[in-house]
């Protein structure tokens, strides 16, 4: 049953992705990208990765769709027409895809408890979470405690991204309004 749900969701993902590639209307593409993220979130739930699903639903389907819509208001609604088929990009994509497919051949089966990734530090983390940290959610224990330094790095990365965004587009410059790109502030 799970396998069936997985296949249906993967099929939907494929259809959505192809639709995004082929549509020329950017509003449609944005909405389809949101739907793609929501399907992804459902797939993650089915794979028991609820943490990732929460993030995907909130950020992928929610926030990034809104940000894309905000960007759309600054640009055109339609993509420029293409000048036909060109071989080099097609070859790059085909070769990369073939290599990725070839790479999956060597991967251990999904959920295989004897795969190298599962045997290295994972048993230690599971036993440690049970005996030393004593919280039920191993994911939280790994993220916040065993990999605390990585998570600190992630928080710093997010903060740095904010600084970058604020430096580039956060300021409200008076000359923007003179140029007529923005309506005057109602609440300065």
């Amino acid at each position: 049953m799970e396998m069936f749900v997985d296949m249906v969701l993967m099929g939907l993902l494929g259809i959505t992705a192809v639709a995004i590639v082929f549509t020329r209307h950017l509003f449609t593409a944005t909405m389809l990208a949101g739907a793609y993220s929501l399907t992804c979130a459902a797939l993650f739930v089915n794979l028991d990765a609820v943490d990732v699903a929460l993030t995907e639903a909130a950020i992928g389907a929610g926030i990034s769709t809104v940000l894309l819509l905000g960007t759309l208001t600054l640009t055109r609604r339609r993509e420029k027409a293409h000048k036909g088929f060109s071989w080099p990009p097609f070859l790059v994509v085909a070769v990369t895809g073939a290599l990725l497919l070839y790479g999956t051949v060597d991967m251990p089966a999904f959920g295989d408890p004897n795969s190298p990734g599962m045997r290295h530090v994972v048993p230690e983390y599971i036993a440690g979470t049970r005996d030393d940290i004593q919280i039920p959610n191993i994911v939280t224990a790994i993220l916040a405690s065993y990999r605390g330094f990585d998570t600190l790095g992630e928080a710093v990365v997010i903060f740095t991204a904010l600084i970058g965004v604020l430096l580039m587009v956060g300021r409200r410059r008076p000359d923007d309004e003179e140029a007529g790109t923005r309506r005057p502030e109602r609440h300065p």
Partner: peptide, 28 residues
């Protein structure tokens, strides 16, 4: 330790997401 650092991450992520949205929405 875990609950405190998670709270720190929560504060940062909330503020960053909202501010990034405000930054883009402010241009529209």
């Amino acid at each position: 330790g875990i609950i405190t650092v998670e709270f720190g991450v929560g504060l940062t992520v909330t503020a960053v997401m909202a501010l990034v949205f405000f930054a883009y929405a402010g241009r529209t």
